[in-house]
């Protein structure tokens, strides 16, 4: 018992998918339990934060943290977990590249609260939860939101990155034993190849004259989705997932984040897309006609940065535009 590894799981601002993905490895979970004891897992067990504080520093061998850092509670907890753990794994896209919640960075914290609590969709409009409130039973404290969503490595040092939304069973089956045995480096589990590299669909060398929303298209299941005029993030997204989405006729949405060594997934995608868009006979066209093609790209920021906004160059909305 004593020579077993001690591991833990923690979630920050997350949907819970990463927690469930741990069980996606099916019977391999038995091998994991053979190798290690799970000492901290708020989703499945009932540990209190005090229990964690009572642990000795460095007593957890590997902690898997998923979710992005959205509130002061997340920030506090990951700092505490860093002290208590030898190795920190950024598990899933939210903690390694900021994740879906990062799109909230295109608005200010005040705008988000206003939209969430003061629009016609909310029943009792105008009541924004207070940080501290008094109830008959005592005082309640709600951790406030941070100025913007952050990835885990902005707060603490991360030892291993494992992207994916959530990490897929094939990634885990390969990665988990290596992580537990201490055989992977920081970026070893981020693929150097793009999703296109692994995609089984047929790509032709041709210009794409226009992009269409997916619901307007009858996609040919054999041909490249981007070629057929539907935005697919494959060219700018790290592989290792074995392209499950394009294989069944759905465009890649970029959940694995940029390939190893690339900082900004959205900028890469803009660059890649600008090179394949185009119409025949451009030479005889006006500049405004050439730009027309770009108009068919809907919401470039939201689509290109869907998962990686908090780890892009700019990270959140700036206040450069006045008036």
């Amino acid at each position: 018992m004593s020579d077993k590894l001690k591991i833990g799981f923690y979630w920050c601002a997350a949907c819970g998918g990463c927690e469930i993905s741990v069980l996606d490895i099916d019977e391999m979970i038995l091998d994991v339990v053979e190798l290690a004891d799970i000492v901290f897992w708020p989703c499945a067990m009932d540990p209190k934060y005090e229990d964690l504080r009572a642990m000795e520093d460095g007593s957890i061998d590997v902690i898997f943290i998923n979710g992005s850092i959205r509130s002061t509670e997340n920030e506090e907890m990951v700092k505490l977990l860093r002290e208590k753990s030898k190795k920190v794994v950024a598990y899933g896209s939210c903690s390694s590249i900021g994740g879906l919640f990062g799109l909230g960075n295109l608005y200010s914290k005040e705008e988000l609260l206003e939209y969430g609590y003061n629009t016609p969709s909310t029943e009792e409009g105008g009541v924004i939860p207070a940080e501290n409130s008094k109830v008959p039973e005592g005082e309640l404290h709600l951790p406030p939101l941070l100025h913007h969503v952050r990835s885990l490595d902005e707060i603490i040092e991360v030892d291993i990155y494992l992207p994916g939304c959530p990490p897929l069973p094939n990634q885990l089956k390969e990665g988990l034993p290596l992580i537990l045995e201490g055989k992977v480096g920081k970026y070893d589990l981020v693929s150097q190849k793009s999703v296109c590299d692994e995609c089984p669909l047929e790509r032709e060398e041709k210009k794409i004259p226009r992009l269409y929303p997916i619901q307007e298209m009858m996609l040919d299941p054999e041909r490249c989705i981007l070629d057929q005029g539907v935005l697919c993030m494959g060219p700018a997204t790290a592989g290792m997932c074995e392209a499950p989405c394009p294989s069944v006729g759905h465009p890649c949405i970029g959940c694995n984040g940029p390939v190893r060594g690339v900082k900004d997934q959205g900028a890469r995608m803009a660059s890649a897309l600008a090179s394949v868009l185009g119409v025949e006979g451009e030479e005889r066209m006006e500049e405004s006609e050439i730009i027309d093609v770009v108009k068919s790209v809907r919401d470039p920021t939201g689509s290109f940065y869907r998962f990686s906004l908090p780890k892009s160059y700019l990270r959140y909305k700036r206040r450069d535009i006045h008036g």
Binding site: I290, V293, P300, R318, D320, I321
Partner: peptide
Amino acid sequence: IDGNYKTIRKIDMFTKILEDFGID
């Protein structure tokens, strides 16, 4: 041959992104 056509599209697309990030 067609390098600058790609540039036109790239810069146009990118300008929209910059605007979303709150940069003039």
